[in-house]
Design a protein around this nucleic acid. Structure first.
Lengths: 149, 149
DNA sequence: TGTAAGTTGAAATCCGTTTTCATTATCGTG
DNA sequence: CACGATAATGAAAACGGATTTCAACTTACA
């Protein structure tokens, strides 16, 4: 059994919540998907194999994942909530391509450290942060150059 | 006449848009407000002195400000759009207090530079970025300590 | 001025998120 | 295993903020 699955089942037990087949199906589908899907997108994907599961259940279950640390909520300012696997996935920030919607991840320890410095100089107790770079990925800006010439 | 006002009037002329009294009132109120108000918040504030102006007009006008560079849109993940004066206001990032909602600004050139480095190593053409640190401001975490002891 | 074109405010609509509610499933217990 | 308390489910409704619609009104410019 995967670690996340164990953790989730344990979380359910602690909270006196019930372990249902829908929750297990959603968990497995969630762990398998790697892209940064919106709730809607994930639901549509899941539905192909599991037409019986409702949107509300998917939504509630993703929130549970976020509560127990399996997932983290992301918001890239497009009005859609997104969830990504966070357990066993190092902290990272994002490059968001405004051309094709692709989302890349990156890590930079120096930036992390500088953030801590900024927080400290403002006497601010930092709990979390978000850093996103918006622009065109290599494919998109190459394509743009092609069409110009 | 303020520079922003000049710029806005010029923008309207270029786009064959009309200079109305509402737009001028909204512009002046907007330039005067310093906090990071949501559209709703700004509207409520404006309304005190100018009860005749509708929400739709405020919303549309703030979007115009963003289009012509007087304002920039911000989204701190609370589901509300916020606008801040950007013209004549250096680029900066934000510290968002999750205790009291206060929003502080900061600048850090080293972080800016590292972001450019990250973009370059991913062959990514960065257009803009957002960096927000969430946590408790000095007032809020001091208060929290008090209540514990 | 006259008039074409843009603007306004109220209300309606949109659209993603969240809740409601009647029904069904789970889990601990006898 | 069967029961009963309690939670979960899915469809549909409600919600909340952003955006659009539309008829009346205002502006710019010939």
């Amino acid at each position: 059994m995967k670690k996340s699955e164990e953790l989730f089942i344990n979380y359910l037990a602690c909270k006196r919540l019930k372990n249902t087949s829908q929750r297990m199906i959603i968990l497995n589908a969630f762990l398998r998907q790697k892209s940064h899907l919106s709730t809607e997108g994930f639901y549509l994907q899941l539905r192909k194999k599991n037409p019986g599961i409702g949107y509300a259940t998917v939504h509630r279950t993703l929130k549970l994942f976020a509560e127990c640390g399996i997932a983290s909520e992301r918001n890239f300012g497009d009005g859609q909530m997104r969830f990504e696997v966070s357990l066993g996935n190092e902290h990272h920030d994002h490059l968001v391509c405004t051309g094709c919607g692709r989302i890349l991840e990156f890590e930079n320890q120096q930036i992390e450290q500088l953030q801590l410095d900024v927080a400290r100089t403002h006497n601010f107790m930092m709990k979390e942060h978000r850093l996103e770079l918006y622009g065109l990925c290599s494919d998109c800006h190459t394509a743009a150059e092609m069409s110009v010439s």
